[in-house]
Design a protein around this nucleic acid. Structure first.
Lengths: 129, 129
DNA sequence: TCATCGATTCGATATTTGTCGATACGATAC
DNA sequence: GTATCGTATCGACAAATATCGAATCGATGA
């Protein structure tokens, strides 16, 4: 009741834009912005995906072949693919098909946008005061 | 399995706060650290909780009474309480019982730790800026 | 062309999570 | 003391999500 309009359907098809300029600490977040930001955070809020991100980031060349990932995180290939898809959709990593292998690299703007949305100037707010 | 990358620690860090100094981009995340960070991110990865955080942050005095929240985000009182508990457990907000009302205030270190974990020096990697 | 190998998508299932109504707890007010 | 108000917890249900096996799609190489 009450609302009846914007409850439920989290349309996660949206990709992750618009995170650039609305820190959660800068004022009240409307439901739409909150849902959008939550979508990107959800993409990160999983141990497997965090490991994937860290593995990709730690790759010497900055990119990594999907074929190596299942062995590195001890998950099946479909599961890894599923998580990679989520990361790509959230704008956190980029996918590139090269021959028959798929290569993934980090998208720094993605993580930076999340950090910005979490409140760039929070430190100034008051650590303990 | 060390892939040869260092990122400190592996297991010596242990304990509770792996969030203070281990950016996901600094090297491979072990499963324990990933799970821990994912837990905090999960606490944030929800539209209702993001709205709660933003509302608390936007409060003029820096704190807000729990009694006002259900009306502000159009959720039942138990639901709001549930989300607040999650935020407190994740170390993102502080709760203080004052008389018969409960007051909540932001914990800047909480969000700052998440931001740090997401890669403090990521800007240096970003192509654009 | 066909055969082979790798990656994604599909289908099904178990777990997690968000939500609310009802209830219990604690503190103030009378 | 009892009544009242605000908050947290309990129990149940619906929706979302993680996971894997099987099937499908795509590209290389003979």
């Amino acid at each position: 009741m009450s609302d009846g309009k914007n409850r439920g359907s989290t349309d996660s098809s949206t990709g992750a834009m618009a995170l650039c300029c609305a820190p959660v600490t800068a004022g009240r977040l409307d439901e739409k912005a909150a849902t959008e930001l939550a979508g990107v955070l959800k993409a990160l809020a999983d141990p497997v995906r965090l490991q994937l991100v860290s593995i990709i980031a730690a790759a010497p060349t900055g990119e990594i072949c999907a074929c190596d990932l299942p062995g590195l995180i001890d998950r099946s290939q479909p599961t890894v693919s599923h998580h990679l898809t989520q990361l790509v959709r959230a704008g956190l990593v980029d996918r590139e098909q090269r021959g028959k292998w798929a290569w993934f690299r980090l998208r720094p703007e993605g993580l930076a946008a999340v950090r910005a949305a979490l409140g760039e100037g929070l430190d100034a707010l008051a650590p303990t005061a």
